[in-house]
Amino acid sequence: MENIALHMLDIVQNSIEANASRIYIEIEKDTTKQKLCITISDNGRGMNKEEIAKVLDPFYTSRTTRKVGMGLSLLKQQVDQTGGCLQIISEQNKGTSTKFCFNLSHIDCPPMGNFEDSISTFITVNPDIELILKVSCATKTFLFESKKFLEIFEGLPLTQSELRKYLYDFLSENMSWIYLTECTI
C-alpha cells in the first residue's frame, strides 16, 4: 500500500464485509515516540478463535471469490518492517477491533497519506454506515460523528461530489495538525 491512510481504508473494508453498521476509527499520534496508531472497531459479525488464529495467514480468507486473503498479512508485513505492531481482538457476533501502529521516523515507514481524503470518500459512498472518528495528538483531540454531519445536510439535493468536498473541508479544518511533527504550528 502506498500510504497509511489507504491501509486504513482497506481495514475499514473488512468491517463493511463483516456487515458492520457502525465503525469507530481512532487515529492517535505519540509525538515523543513519533508513533502513529490506528484502531478500527466495528459491530460486524466478528470472528471465532479459530478464525482469529488464521487471520494473519495470507492463505486464509472467508471470501469465496478468491482463495487468498491478503489485507491483514500485507499490513502485518509493513508494520513489522517499521518495528510497529498489529493486534486483532474479535468476538463472534459482537465485532472486531484491529489496531496497528507505525513508527513514523523509521526509514521504511510509508507516508501518512491523506486521512481526511480517505474518510470523506468513505462516508460519501457509505452514508448508511455510521462512522465515528477520534483523532488525538499531544494536547489536541478531534471527535467527529458522520451521523451528526449528515443530519445537518439531510434533504438537500447535494451531489456526492459536493458532499465529499464539505466533508473534506470540515475534517481538514479540524485535524490537519496530525501531519505536523509536534502537532503544533
Binding site: M1, L6, L9, D10, G71, T121, T124, V125, S161, R164
Partner: peptide, 16 residues
Amino acid sequence: TCGIASGAKQVMDYFI
C-alpha cells in the same frame, strides 16, 4: 486490498 493497492480509490473519486 487488490483494488485499493492498484488505485481504486482515485478511480472512485474520479467518478464522484
